[in-house]
Design a protein around this nucleic acid. Structure first.
Lengths: 189, 189
DNA sequence: ATACCCATGTAAGACGTTACATGATTTG
DNA sequence: CAAATCATGTAACGTCTTACATGGGTAT
């Protein structure tokens, strides 16, 4: 039941509509949680029914109307309660790792292709996260920002996202290189 | 539908029972996928019904009998098909990141405690994975093993697990240190 | 013209988690 | 002698994904 808390955490930053939330939780951007639009609309409805967020209608001329949501006091209390609970260890569930696990029994060329693809996805995310971090820092150095800046939470999670994707990229390229060398050595014989 | 492929990949290494598989996919050990025992028993039944694995009963005196499973030719073909498919990008879903995202609105002491807890979990995993890697290498250097060793797949995925946990540990300690400094600076005023 | 963006959902089905059930054997 | 390990499941419930539905406005 952490999706609700992820939504609450996202809404602490700024008032958002379901649609805007959906973009923030999208695969391409999500740096601390991922969810689909349908989940978010449903969760927002539940959160509102439980009084943890409150929505206000914003009428728009040229675009469809939207509802912007804010965290209520009860919502903040719920987040505080959540923060004191022990969190379940997070685990890996990644198609690519499954494929590499079976590397010895599969076509190396295919695997190398998948690894390169993933490395490129990681490159894109690294650039994205780097930009987000720069925007949050503004014209301050990182040291300065970490000392005095407000909204440190999103900065820290984005830093984790960045390091995670750098890890992905490095591991993918390293693994691909090893598989290539082994394939070459095998072909020589 | 990647659990089935994760099971197939695990069974390529060696013939295993549901119980042994469950241990391999456990939270503490899982380096390329995670699943609960109940899922694995159910998936093994489905895989057998579909002819992708075959089980053989092993009668034991002192322990309950068990069924050991092997990947069939059809199972290997299914894995090969899976390896050629584009994999969906993997995403983060971690309680701890949600909590840190909300850092600016929560008690710093609590967060620091969670971060330290997680860092210690990571430490334990790092040791575990380090040991697994050493066992796989045997008396060879890593370079040598990566060149000639067999069963390179599990080695590569375990390397990813290790790097991931090192990333976790470093980020947790770094974040905790920043939150501590900010708390101290705040208390001074 | 075609496609994408804004904006919000419903419904069905697949997948994952929690709780329960059983029972002998080995380890501390 | 209590707890953990070996060994295999069933049942209920909760969460996530996939498919469908609608409709105006803006960019190429």
């Amino acid at each position: 039941m952490a999706l609700r808390h992820a939504v609450l955490a996202a809404l602490l930053e700024e008032e958002l509509s379901g649609y805007q939330l959906a973009k923030a939780f999208d695969l391409g951007v999500a740096n601390f949680w991922h969810a689909l639009p349908q989940q978010l609309y449903a969760e927002l409805a539940r959160l509102e029914a439980d009084g943890l967020v409150s929505g206000r209608e914003v009428v728009q001329d040229t675009r469809p109307n939207k509802r912007l949501f804010t965290v209520t006091d009860a919502g903040l209390a719920e987040l505080e309660r959540f923060a004191t609970s022990a969190d379940k260890p997070s685990f890996i569930r990644d198609d690519l790792l499954v494929k590499v696990q079976a590397a010895d029994h599969l076509d190396a060329g295919e695997l190398i292709a998948r690894l390169e693809e993933r490395a490129e996805v990681a490159d894109a995310k690294i650039e994205l996260f780097g930009g987000l971090l720069r925007r949050m820092r503004g014209d301050r150095s990182e040291e300065e920002f970490l000392r005095d800046g407000d909204r440190i939470g999103p900065y820290l999670t984005c830093r984790r996202g960045l390091a995670f994707e750098e890890g992905n990229r490095d591991w993918c390229r390293w693994s691909a290189a090893i598989l290539r060398e082994r394939r070459a050595a095998h072909a020589e014989r």
